[in-house]
Amino acid sequence: MDRRSFVGFVAPSVLAMLLLILVPLLGTAWLSLHESYVKTELAEVRTTVPLFGGLSREDVRRVPQAVRDAAGNPVHVWNFVGLDNFANVLGLDRLGQAMAATPVRIGQLYRDVTSIEFWGALEFSLLYIAATTPCVLLLGFALALAVDATSRRVRGALIFASLLPFIITPVVGALSIYWLFLDNAIVNAGLQGLGFAKFYFLSGALPIRSLIILYGVWHATPFAFVVLYAGLQTLPQDALEAALVDGATRWQRLWLVIVPHLVPLFVFVGLIHMMDAYRVFEPVLVFGSNLYANSLQYMTYRILNTEDNYSKAAAASLLTVLGIVILLIPILRRMWRERQTA
């Protein structure tokens, strides 16, 4: 295909991405370096206060008022503030105080730092990645092996049930788990039926964080399962038979033939999952407040909505993007090397 027709074919798609991904990204960068406020001026307000007998007095007060443009909209002023918004998001002043405290106690320092919203959100985002990734891979692999060994007739039904947590709307999935753990819902009712005391799952950091991680494993395992299951269908049969002839045990076959064959898929699923886990949003939204668990994407959403501070949200966004770029570097480097060799 020649260059001209290539450009023609990709133009609409590239234009859409340019206008609605690249330009907004640059806009976010611009916002993060600026601060806006509504321009105000002191306006004289004259009011006529009626006195008695038809007399009246004129009151003059000076009140701050928004300056309006010709169309009657308030005029926004944008000031360049350098990296102030980033310092604000990173909580540099509080970070400095925490660092300067003497004597240095690691535990206290860690608590002080993670009590700053950004570092707390980063902490939980990383914790979420670290906790869910191995569980998703292991459970997905175990399920793939188990389904592979069952008879064909039930496989379709097993795959159908497995896809539910992955395909169904994340907000709905998170809510469906959340609703199970309400104070008066089925899990607590079951616990009490078995003679346990009532457990308040939705108050306190540890249970909420555990539930969010549980949701993450539940939601992402089907993806790992499906990909690894497909990988099992492409196993080299002659290698398996050779191992059998050589008297390899089940474990040896698993470790020496099956797992090495699937390593690229483990890497692929792991990387995709880490990318998606890094931007975890829905369960944090559903399970509650940023008091107990926060994530980078949820933090930006909160700044945008409740603080209504576009500049600070932009700075938080860009810091989040920085993290995703770091995560992506190994993948991009591999693609680059593959292209060089090809």
Partner: peptide, 30 residues
């Protein structure tokens, strides 16, 4: 079908865009 370098770069950029948290774009859209 295209063999040139532009295609490769487009795919690389698309990969970065695919990984981007959506709230980043929302910040500018709003």
């Amino acid at each position: 079908r295209y063999r040139g370098a532009a295609g490769f770069w487009l795919l690389m950029v698309a990969l970065v865009f695919r990984a981007m948290p959506h709230v980043v774009l929302l910040t500018a859209y709003k």
